[in-house]
Amino acid sequence: MLGKLEEVIIMATLRSGGNAMPSAIYEIIVGSTAPGSKEQAFGAVYTTLNRMAAKNLLTSGKVVDEKGRERKTFTVTAAGQRALQESLHPINVLGGHGLVGAFA
């Protein structure tokens, strides 16, 4: 089962379209933060991305940025997609997504 941050990272990486740099994934996560909530820590996102790559939930690639620096990029693997599906399944079954806004 994935942790909450891992779920969010996989969804943000999928949203980025793949081959995304950690800073781009982080910006997507920050953009999805609920108003008034605390921003996700960048250090945690970066470290978790590398850990997930080590667990084969993401693949890591390289790209050269506009300043000529070699940068890591991340893409979700099939194992990562499966893990996300498994992780979201109970929430779906229990109608968790339908509750969004119900307690506002």
């Binding site: 740099m21 800073s23 982080y26 960048f42 970066y46 620096r69 070699e70 940068r71 890591k72």
Partner: peptide, 10 residues
């Protein structure tokens, strides 16, 4: 290098 570049972007 990668960590520094990402921190600068953020």
């Amino acid at each position: 290098l990668d960590a520094r570049a990402n921190l600068e972007d953020a």
